[in-house]
């Protein structure tokens, strides 16, 4: 009873309301994005880009600007760079991601070392602080998520075909390059707005985990979408409440819940053979 009254009391706080609102939108957009990235074997790109966002957030804090303003264009540039390295320089995609990712962390660490005064701020970008996000950050998160969701709905069938058979998508007249670029940008935006919520080190798990968990049980593409979004929403909402109740870091709690859900469905699939 005490727990329920604590939860009921918590939803009256404005910071919890903002966290739930932005968390819900981010959960839907990142899980939808994650489905296509996982099936196209590109989910590691989000991991690489989240490391880039750490470096760009550090740079923004060093020069005294909003991390959103600096991170957004630089992370988009990094995603285009990864795409170009893979397609033009003929570097394996995991190696290209590794190059950009490690370089970004090195740059980030050097910047943090130079501007030693903002260590506390950078900690919130590294590991997230959803309970401390501003109204502008909430609005940006909702806007970015809505754009992502709308784009995925519009190009849903094209993305499905690209994920299963890229060659067939090309001969079907689908502009694969344009969609690749568009969704690289969308992915960058989701990562940048998401780092304040779960942190640069953990945002990629919000993209990857729900897709991989739903893959354990989905028997059609439609069911994968339903499972993936539900798992993501469940982990984000329960994660926000649990972190409030147990006074734990929100981003890490959400990721841990995602990990637990993956383990449960992985084991259930091994026992009951859903697929």
């Amino acid at each position: 009873m005490e727990l329920i009254s604590l939860l009921l009391k918590s939803v009256q706080y404005e910071f919890i309301q903002k966290a739930l609102l932005s968390g819900t939108f981010l959960a839907i957009s990142s899980s939808l994005l994650g489905i296509f990235l996982a099936l196209q074997r590109k989910s590691l790109i989000s991991d690489g880009l989240s490391h880039v966002s750490f470096a760009t957030a550090a740079l923004a804090l060093l020069i005294g600007l909003s991390p959103l303003i600096i991170s957004l264009p630089l992370v988009i540039l990094a995603s285009i760079l990864i795409n170009k390295l893979v397609s033009h320089a003929h570097i394996y995609s995991d190696s290209a991601i590794g190059l950009v990712s490690s370089l970004s962390i090195a740059v980030g660490v050097l910047i943090v070392n130079v501007g030693s005064g903002f260590n506390v701020d950078i900690y919130s970008y590294l590991f997230g602080s959803i309970l401390a996000i501003s109204p502008i950050e909430t609005a940006l998160c909702i806007a970015a998520s809505l754009i992502t969701i709308v784009l995925i709905i519009i190009f849903f069938n094209d993305l499905f075909l690209i994920s299963y058979d890229e060659d067939y998508a090309r001969i079907s007249g689908i502009n694969v390059k344009m969609l690749d670029l568009t969704f690289s940008i969308v992915q960058s935006v989701v990562i940048v707005v998401g780092i304040k919520i779960v942190g640069a080190m953990l945002i990629s798990s919000l993209i990857i985990f729900p897709a991989i968990t739903s893959l354990q049980i989905a028997r059609s593409f439609k069911s994968m979408i339903v499972f993936s979004v539900s798992i993501s929403l469940l982990s984000v909402i329960i994660g926000i409440f649990s972190s409030f109740v147990f006074n734990a870091p929100t981003g890490a709690t959400i990721v841990l819940l995602n990990g637990i859900l993956f383990l449960i469905f992985f084991i259930l699939n091994k026992i009951f053979k859903f697929k």
Binding site: L39, F160, S163, Y164, Y168, S214, L215, R219, S220, K222
Partner: peptide, 12 residues
Amino acid sequence: NFPSNVREIIRS
């Protein structure tokens, strides 16, 4: 491991 049934693939 692609999570799609035959009907969905044919329709594409």
